[in-house]
């Protein structure tokens, strides 16, 4: 345990040291400039104190970001438009909806590909090709077009999340459903199992480890999709909207707090899938 934790703690500590140092370096010109206009000479300790406490710094210090997160989560009511919890919830709901749709589509496609030779040969290359298209780039068009036909709110964002998240699921599930080897399939045949029984009793259970691995990737991708999907909606609500509004008004602390919130959300969601994975595989006797 100590062998595993200590290096990680050391690396994280190093990142924080670098962050503070970078904050001094990046914010110093502005502090110096202001001091010169006020006609005072800054000592080094004053300079450092100033760079870590500016209103609109180029790079806010970690404690400023944490203070901002604390202020906008714990001290604001959840329904307030200035509450980060409110914005996170909007993004989270789009992420989860898109993730659910993407997972369903991915599993359905994978089952089709494994059981239908025509689908395998015709659809699979296009699924791979579809991911070399930078789909995030057309997110604004999808949002605007869906808005024009009367679909607005949660669904357009969820569609983008779905497009990003179905791919890892398809690839993982196709691999997983094909993972039983000839011996096992032959065994099923000697038991006179139908195709249906082979699927439910052998193929599906043995695909579970692959499914969970790809679900983690899909969840992370789905969050990215939801955030980018919020950019062109006119910046109303959601973490992506906070990013955009922050960049319009130069509110760097706000951008960083939204960014850290998104990171925490991603970490929590992926960790949640990890927990479900461990419980499921344990009960199936696979872990």
């Amino acid at each position: 345990m100590r062998r595993a934790v200590l290096p990680v703690v050391a690396v994280v500590a190093m990142i924080f040291v670098l962050w503070y140092a970078a904050a001094v370096a990046l914010n110093a010109p502005w502090a110096q400039d202001r001091a010169k206009r006020a006609g005072v000479e800054l000592s080094f300790s004053e300079l450092v104190a100033d760079t870590w406490a500016q209103d609109k710094p180029k790079l806010p210090a970690p404690h400023q970001v944490v203070a901002e997160i604390w202020k906008t989560t714990a001290l604001k009511s959840v329904t307030s438009k200035r509450s980060l919890v409110f914005h996170s919830w909007i993004t989270l709901s789009a992420t989860l909806l898109g993730f659910a749709m993407g997972t369903a589509l991915g599993i359905a496609l994978a089952v089709g590909i494994v059981f239908n030779r025509v689908m395998d040969m015709s659809v699979m290359p296009w699924i791979i090709a579809s991911q070399t298209i930078p789909i995030l780039a057309i997110a604004p068009m999808i949002i605007v077009v869906l808005n024009a036909v009367g679909i607005s709110g949660l669904l357009p964002k969820a569609m983008i999340s779905m497009y990003l998240s179905f791919f890892p699921v398809v690839v993982g599930m196709v691999k997983g459903l094909r993972s039983p080897d000839h011996m096992q399939l032959d065994q099923m045949r000697t038991w006179n199992a139908s195709g249906n029984q082979t699927f439910w009793r052998l193929r599906l259970p043995s695909s579970m480890p692959y499914l969970f691995t790809s679900l983690k990737v899909a969840m992370a991708a789905s969050l990215v999709g939801a955030i980018v999907g919020e950019l062109p909606t006119g910046a109303v609500a959601g973490l992506g909207a906070r990013l955009l509004a922050g960049s319009y008004y130069g509110q760097t602390i706000q951008i960083w707090s939204a960014l850290l919130m998104a990171a925490a959300l991603a970490a929590a969601l992926v960790a949640l899938i990890g927990v479900i994975q461990r419980i499921t595989l344990k009960r199936m006797g696979m872990a």
Partner: peptide
């Protein structure tokens, strides 16, 4: 030592919505 520390952190960062850094870097 660095390797054991950097791999989990790197894996974690690779799963984050890094694209959100875009507005900051544009600034």
């Amino acid at each position: 030592f660095l390797q054991r520390g950097l791999l989990p952190v790197g894996n974690f960062v690779a799963a984050l919505p890094v694209i959100g850094m875009a507005p900051i870097l544009v600034m």
